[in-house]
Design a binder for these strands. Sequence first.
DNA 1: ATGGCTGCAAACAGTTTGCATGCCC
DNA 2: GGGCATGCAAACTGTTTGCAGCCAT
Lengths: 132, 132
Amino acid sequence: MSTNRSIRRNSQQRQVILEELQRLKSHPTAADLYEIVRRRLPRISLGTVYRNLELLAEQGTIRRLDAGAVQARFDGKLALHHHIRCQSCGSVDDIELPPLDLSGFIPQNTGGYEVYGHRLEFFGICPQCRKS
Amino acid sequence: MSTNRSIRRNSQQRQVILEELQRLKSHPTAADLYEIVRRRLPRISLGTVYRNLELLAEQGTIRRLDAGAVQARFDGKLALHHHIRCQSCGSVDDIELPPLDLSGFIPQNTGGYEVYGHRLEFFGICPQCRKS
DNA sequence: ATGGCTGCAAACAGTTTGCATGCCC
DNA sequence: GGGCATGCAAACTGTTTGCAGCCAT
C-alpha cells in the first residue's frame, strides 16, 4: 500500500520476472514464478521475486489477485449479500446492492471447470482510512 | 477441504464461537474472534478457534471469505477478464464471460466507503480435480 | 560514485498439528 | 467408558525485512 517514490532502475531480474509472467497464461504464485525465472537467472532469490512482484503490482504493470486477503475472515450470516473490502486496512463490510441476478451470466466456456458459484466483491477505502 | 465424517459433539467452545460470530455484523478474523470469545471462555486457545471455524465452515453453518486464497497469485494480463478458482487445489484460470456490464449495479449504500471497483470471481472444481 | 537493487538468511504472521488430557454422549 | 475435542506449544507456510555488497545510471 506504500508508494515508492524513488527512481526505478531496470534490473535484469525485474525484466525477466515481468517477461515470464506476461508469457504465462496462468496465474502463478510467487514461488511458481521463482522456479520459472530461476531457469534463466539461477542465482535469483525468492525475496527478489516478491519484491519485484510487489513493485510491479504497485505501479500497475501487473495485477495481484486476492489483493489484501492476508487473513481469513468469517461471516456468520448465510443470506446472500455482498462485501466491500478496504484496500488500505483490509477490513470487510457488508454492502447493499440493488437486486442482482447474475444467473444469466453463467460463463460460456468454463475451461472444463464444474462451476459451483461466484462471488462479487467490491473494493475501496473505508471511512476511517479516508480520513487519513 | 477434507470431510470429517466422525460424529460431532456439541462443545461449549464450539457453541460460544458460533454464537459470537453470529452476533457480530462484522467479518472477524480468527484472532478477532479469539479475543471476543476469550471474554466468555478465558482458557480457550487460538487453535480451538481455528479448528471450529474450519469445521463450521465445512458443514455450511458459517461462511469463510476469501476461500482458498492461501497464496497470492499474479496476473500479467491487464485487460478486463474474470477468473475461476478451483476449490480443491486452489488453481486459478481465466474464464470467458458474455459481455457483462455491472455499472448499473453500483452499490446504493456504501457504508461510507469510497468505491474503486469490483471483482467478480467464480469458483468450482477444475478438470484435474474432477477426475479424482 | 551514488543509491537502488540483489542474494542471503533471519524474522514474522497466520495457520496447522501432535500430544496428553478433558469432557460430551 | 470411549473417543471426539481441547489447551498448549512446536512446527509449517507464505511473506517480509535487515544487511553488506553489487550494478545500472
